[in-house]
């Protein structure tokens, strides 16, 4: 099934990645091959197997709720565009 219903344009749109025409073709064929390979998981009956949610079971980890220093404006130093100590973005709502 994998190689027939893998819609590269739909997935690229979900992932917010612009692909060139040659990238589309290469990735579509490579990913189909990888998906064909992972089909082998279907050989296993996992009906009553719980899924892993954490590699090593841990109980909730708590820390005292006390104020501490934070990044403040240094967080802006790597922003592609900033204005008045804010991130500048393109217009989102018309």
């Amino acid at each position: 099934m994998a190689d027939t219903d893998f819609d590269i344009d739909y997935i690229a749109r979900l992932a917010r990645i612009h692909l060139s025409e040659s990238e589309r073709q290469v990735y579509a064929s490579q990913l189909s091959k990888i998906l064909e390979y992972v089909e082998k998981l279907k050989e296993l009956d996992t009906e009553n197997i719980p899924s892993t949610t954490h590699p090593i079971p841990t109980i909730n980890v708590m820390r005292p709720d006390v104020p501490a220093t934070s990044l403040s404006t240094t967080a802006l130093e790597n922003a592609p565009e900033q204005v008045d100590q804010l991130f500048r973005t393109p217009k989102i709502v018309d």
Partner: peptide, 9 residues
């Protein structure tokens, strides 16, 4: 989900 179940195995 299947992969996470196989991870349990």
């Amino acid at each position: 989900l299947k992969a996470q179940k196989v991870r349990t195995l």
